[in-house]
Computed example of a mutant assay.
Amino acid sequence: MPETNSALVIDIPVQLPHLKSVHSIGALQFEGDLPASIFHLQLITGDIADWRAEADIVAVFHTNAGHVTLNDGAYNRSRNILTGNPYRDLVADLMKRGVRIELCGATARVNRWGNADLLEGVRVNLDAMARTIQLVQQGFVKITE
């Protein structure tokens, strides 16, 4: 893509004092080599920091994205590779930014993953659908990634 020297003007500025969102992440789509869902979480947590907003952000990994929450050993076994989880540092950074990372319990059961297979700090919910409904009923905005 050619570079341009044109300036970008934001026509619709946004600043939120409070926000609650649940991100339902069932598959990985990529922006280059970075999962778009992780890029979007980085973007919104950066905005939250800039706004000094109160926020509660939950990312629920499930279905074909559940492996993002695995530790290196479990990731290697699940993905049949030896490189370890390439997303572990990105997930750890999101947690440092205040994002609650959850794994769908149904996804874990189908894949025979236990709590010991997860990255430190990842919590397991009953299942992604029930958890998302619960959070939406509590006033969270649902973002589907």
Rank of each mutant, 00 (worst) to 15 (best):
H62A: 07
H62N: 12
H62I: 06
T63A: 15
T63S: 15
N64H: 14
N64D: 14
N64A: 14
N64F: 13
N64S: 14
N64V: 03
A65P: 02
A65G: 07
A65C: 08
G66S: 06
G66E: 03
G66Y: 04
G66P: 00
G66D: 03
H67I: 06
H67G: 12
H67T: 08
H67Y: 15
V68M: 00
T69L: 01
L70A: 09
L70Y: 03
L70H: 04
N71K: 05
N71P: 02
D72T: 05
D72Q: 08
D72P: 03
D72L: 08
G73I: 01
G73S: 07
G73R: 02
A74R: 00
A74G: 00
A74K: 00
Y75L: 01
Y75V: 00
N76H: 02
N76F: 00
R77M: 05
R77I: 02
S78G: 09
S78C: 09
S78N: 11
S78L: 02
S78I: 03
S78E: 11
S78R: 04
R79C: 09
R79W: 02
R79Q: 13
R79V: 04
N80P: 01
N80H: 14
N80F: 09
I81H: 05
I81M: 10
I81Y: 03
I81S: 12
L82F: 10
L82W: 04
L82D: 13
L82M: 06
L82A: 14
L82I: 06
L82N: 11
T83Y: 03
T83N: 12
T83Q: 12
T83C: 08
T83M: 09
G84Q: 05
G84E: 07
N85M: 03
N85W: 01
N85H: 04
N85P: 00
N85G: 02
N85A: 04
P86Q: 11
P86H: 08
P86N: 12
P86M: 13
P86W: 07
Y87N: 10
Y87M: 12
Y87G: 10
Y87W: 12
R88G: 08
R88H: 07
D89Y: 14
D89C: 11
D89A: 15
D89F: 15
L90H: 15
L90T: 07
L90Y: 13
V91W: 06
V91M: 07
A92N: 11
A92C: 10
A92V: 07
A92R: 14
D93K: 13
D93H: 10
D93W: 06
D93S: 10
D93R: 09
